[in-house]
């Protein structure tokens, strides 16, 4: 009887999960093996030919490289800042809760709103950054229109958005540190930097791994800002994999190629899932 009840309770969730996660995952792989259909030529099975054209698609490689640099640019900086923020507000200091609030607020804002605000900072000549530079006599620059500066500009904005979110996990971890730890280090005459390097940082390692994996995950899932800031441009200089999938599906209406690209994204996510499974002890975070 308990088998029946168990499955009955699970049924609503199971139907929805199968319909919107498991089935579409398999369907994506299946669709990637067919050619793009049109009214004259229906879609037909073409084996791996979509994958072959993907390998020869310069935009695909461009997008993948961008994703790599986006991750490399965003993650170390935002995780480093997150640790710094957590350590700063974990001690008693004047205005502690105000500081914590300031760091955390960007987390609550939608990426689309953040992009709207930052768009003005980056706009050429009239934008805030160019105005400030201009007052020092430095000429304006089209930050989002220049392929060399567009990705760094987006990285900077993403760091601002994410650091406070990651700080939360470090704060949670630091709260479980016994007070005696710092006292012992102080009595032993350890410098604060030594204490951080040899005690705090190693103890935070599980949190760092957890945050790292989530940060990598976010770097593949986060594309909202591209809709407002650059639409992937100029010349794909800021395009990311998920945005390219969206473009293929909903602008070029090539759902089969979009499916092929989605398979690549799924493989990346699977690798991350395995990393999480092997490197992480979940209990540390979920008590």
């Amino acid at each position: 009887m308990r088998h029946v009840y168990g499955w009955l309770l699970l049924t609503p969730a199971a139907i929805l999960l199968i319909a919107f996660t498991h089935f579409p995952t398999l369907a994506t792989v299946y669709e990637s093996l067919f050619s793009k259909g049109s009214t004259i030529r229906p879609s037909r099975f073409t084996g791996f030919s979509n994958y072959e054209s993907m390998m020869e698609d310069p935009v695909f490689w461009k997008v993948l490289t961008n994703n790599f640099w986006f991750a490399v640019g965003t993650i170390p900086l935002s995780v480093g800042l997150a640790i710094a923020m957590a350590l700063l507000v974990n001690r008693t200091l004047p205005g502690r809760s105000l500081l914590r609030l300031a760091y955390f607020t960007p987390t609550i804002l939608p990426m689309i709103a953040v992009a709207n605000i930052w768009l003005f900072f980056y706009s050429p000549d009239i934008g805030l950054i160019d105005q400030i530079l201009g007052s020092f006599g430095i000429a304006g620059h089209n930050w989002l229109g220049d392929p060399d500066t567009v990705l760094p500009a987006i990285i900077l904005m993403t760091v601002w958005k994410e650091a406070g979110f990651f700080m939360i996990f470090y704060l949670a971890a630091l709260q479980h540190f016994p007070e005696e730890l710092e006292e012992a280090a102080t009595l032993e005459g350890a410098s604060r930097w030594y204490y951080f390097r040899r005690v705090v940082f190693p103890l935070l390692m599980p949190t760092t791994l957890f945050v790292l994996i989530n940060a990598v995950l976010n770097s593949f899932k986060l594309v909202d800002h591209l809709f407002v800031l650059t639409k992937g441009g100029p010349n794909n200089a800021s395009n990311l994999l998920l945005y390219y999938i969206y473009e293929n599906a909903f602008s070029y209406f090539d759902t089969n190629y979009a499916a092929t690209l989605t398979v690549v994204l799924l493989v990346i996510l699977a690798v991350l899932a395995l990393a999480q499974f092997f490197f992480l002890d979940r209990r540390i975070h979920y008590r």
């Binding site: 919107f20 996660t21 089935f23 579409p24 995952t25 369907a27 994506t28 669709e31 995950l217 899932k221 998920l242 999938i245 969206y246 599906a249 759902t255 979009a258 499916a259 989605t262 994204l265 799924l266 996510l269 699977a270 991350l272 899932a273």
Partner: peptide
């Protein structure tokens, strides 16, 4: 890992 928006096409 696989949020619904990843499988946007299907």
């Amino acid at each position: 890992m696989i949020a619904p928006e990843i499988l946007i096409v299907e």
